[in-house]
Amino acid sequence: MAGVRAATGVGADADIARQNDELGPSARSGRGQLTAGRRRQLAGWLFLAPAILYLLFAFALPIAYNVMLSFEESSPETIASFTAPFAGLANYRFILSDPTTQSAIIHTFEFTAGSLIGQFIIGFTLALLFSLRFPGRTIGRSLIIVPWLVPLLVTGVIFKFLFQLEGGAVNQILLDIGLAHHPIDWLETPQLGLLTILIANIWLGVPFFFLLLYSGLQDIPIEVKEAAVMDGAGPWQRLRLVIVPIILPVIEVTVLLGFVFTVKVFDLVVALTGGGPANATQLITTWSYNLSFQQFIFGEGAALNNVLLVLALICAPVYLWLSRDSLRRSTGAAR
């Protein structure tokens, strides 16, 4: 093992030496050796090289190519070729006038807003509940994470099973407690389909909201809470005037990440409803997949992808601003 490490160490030195040669005489110090600072600089770049290459290949290239595709006239015939005839704005004109695309955009907004509201209310309530001391809170806290760890496609399959018309658990519960008199066709009724994917998504997202908000609540100093009690604040006042203002930064980050996560949702809907019935649960992601991979019109799919990308990136400046401390820190890294 030590031999292998030594060997790779030598390899890294050789790499530095090679880079050194490429840089020419100016990069060398008087004795033909790298100065410590420059050597470190080179080592840093070598450590970064795989990540930079990966980001270029897996993010920059696909995004750039996606922009290119969106201005091309694609058809099933052009699927194998890297380029297709230039189409101008035709793909964008198509998706902006296409009723299914419009409804997919509206569904995405409804789905995202509904999910965030539901996940926040439930996640925050559970976080407050588990901040109190009672028996079983430790084990309960770790079990709440379970839905987050289930693969998204699998969650869709599970909810498809639970929301079945005949013999589904949800209908059985509603019938048993008398809230319904006949089984409800959740997955085949347009309005209910959207509600079903919303419920499934809230279920899988609650652990994330819970965990972040819970850890935020733990950071509130006990003195602050005690002082509020001393001042005679009731539970509601304490929540509104003390707790929420203190953990507001955590709430902001959580909702932001929740938004980013929710506009991307794809697997869940594909498994649960497949975008149906009659495109009633089609989101931007699933409709984009449909355009590209089922109708083989990649140009239109790419144009819709860019709409989605712009929607998702709206929150990028906010995200960068919230991360400003971490960003700034990097400029003053160890010397």
Partner: peptide
């Protein structure tokens, strides 16, 4: 933040 479907369409 980049949605996977954007990457998937191009990577295909």
């Amino acid at each position: 933040i980049v949605p996977s479907i954007v990457i998937a369409t191009s990577l295909f």
